[in-house]
Amino acid sequence: MAPSSLPLRAAILSLLLLAILLGAWELAVQPPANTHGARVPGPSKIFEHAVNELSDPFYDAGPNDKGIGLQLAYSIARVLSGYLLAAMMAIPAGFVIGMSPLWRRALDPYIQVLKPISPLAWMPLALYVIKDSATSAIFVIFICSIWPMLINTAFGVASVRRDYINVARTHELSPLATALQVILPAAAPTILTGMRISIGISWLVIVAAEMLVGGTGIGYYVWNEWNNLNLASVIFSIIMIGLVGMLLDQLLAYAQGLVQYED
């Protein structure tokens, strides 16, 4: 077989695996006839549910019952505001840390302590201090997405080749011009890697944060369906969370491709 058909063969294999998996799942959950209540639904049930939900994704039937599209939009808006806020602080701070060994050493202990804290541990404190649940959720996204961007920016800036900076110096560029015209393009791929890690973490965290504070968003949707032990809805929302997460990751991957360069 010609090598060009490799993607085709991979696709066929993928589909075959999916079919086997779904088939086994469907068979495994055939219900015993005499009970009611929640049990793990089969793929056909979930598909049926998904068609139902996706046929009207933006309905708004009161404050506690909104369509899946609206809920996802709420979550994405929260993630983006926390994430962009973090980027606005992390990237300039990363530049400072990366360009100055003094600052790097001085700030390192704080970063090391703050980085591993689960963002949800901040939630009770945030609710108490900020006194607003929506802002608290955004704060939690902010605090979890800042570290990968900060560390990657600092690392990227610090490991720009000395030659580039020396060339800039011989051209008598100002420090700001050096940062923007030489270091930024050189460090961009590393910075983008940090941004890509951050958006992934943000999306992971928003679901948990919304399950905690509730109100709106995909996390609230999952919680509300869990409340009703409606597993078809829960599995459907798991798939939606996965799809949106992949989409966000692909966007950043595309941006990463734009700033890639060969040494």
């Binding site: 108490y128 006194k131 607003d132 649940s133 399950m211 504070v213 509730g214 109100g215």
Partner: peptide, 15 residues
């Protein structure tokens, strides 16, 4: 508005 737990309802009421 449906709320997830008592601690959250307390905090949202106090806020």
């Amino acid at each position: 508005i449906k709320t997830a737990g008592w601690a959250v309802i307390r905090d949202k009421a106090l806020n």
